[in-house]
């Protein structure tokens, strides 16, 4: 995906989010660090332009909720910040790639520790399949079938200086 395709996908996703939730009332976009955050901010910006309402954007660090601490080296953890209380809100989790579903599970646990939201929905720019948990995204930018050997790399201007999505071969470098 190039930057135009990403832009069009984000445009469709924000429309779907508003349609499903009958507007922007009570929404909270929770970007999962790192690249869920710029995506959540883009969705919020588009909603602001289209509907003239400001949807709060939170940042979620889910490292403390992962179930695979033992399989990975020590990570840097960053603060989870929510501009508003999650209680009673519709929390839309925003991530760049949906893969095993473990990140979304961890994010749901993290949200639940902050309060009791009205409901939680999940958004991903790319759904690459290979779920290991009974989790699906409510809003998807693009479904990209992959082999497990492959990687999906998403880059955003805000974090990487360029907008693109590529499929890469794992581990031969």
């Amino acid at each position: 995906m190039d930057s135009d395709e990403i832009r069009r996908a984000v445009t469709r996703m924000f429309h779907e989010i508003l349609e499903r939730n009958h507007g922007a009332d009570g929404l909270l976009l929770a970007g999962i660090r790192t690249r869920g955050v710029p995506l959540a901010e883009r969705l919020a910006e588009q909603i602001r332009q289209a509907e003239n309402v400001t949807v709060p954007v939170g940042r979620l660090d889910i490292n403390l909720y992962r179930d695979d601490l033992s399989e990975r080296p020590r990570m840097r953890i960053r603060p989870t910040t929510m501009p508003v209380d999650v209680a009673g809100r519709t929390v839309v989790l925003v991530d760049d790639v949906l893969y095993t579903g473990r990140t979304v599970r961890a994010a749901m646990d993290a949200i639940s520790d902050l309060g009791r939201p009205l409901r939680i929905q999940a958004t991903a720019l790319v759904d690459r399949g290979h779920r290991e948990l009974p989790i699906r995204a409510d809003f998807v930018g693009k479904n990209i079938p992959t082999r497990q050997m492959e990687l999906v790399r998403v880059r955003f201007n805000e974090t990487d200086g360029i907008d693109d999505v590529c499929i890469l071969e794992r581990g031969t470098a």
Partner: peptide, 23 residues
């Protein structure tokens, strides 16, 4: 578009900057 990298997929996408020094 195919390129090669050494990173693990989740490391790549996640918030994963390791703490230096495997202590």
């Amino acid at each position: 578009m195919v390129a090669t990298v050494a990173n693990d997929n989740e490391l790549f996408q996640g918030n994963a900057v390791p703490v230096p020094g495997l202590r």
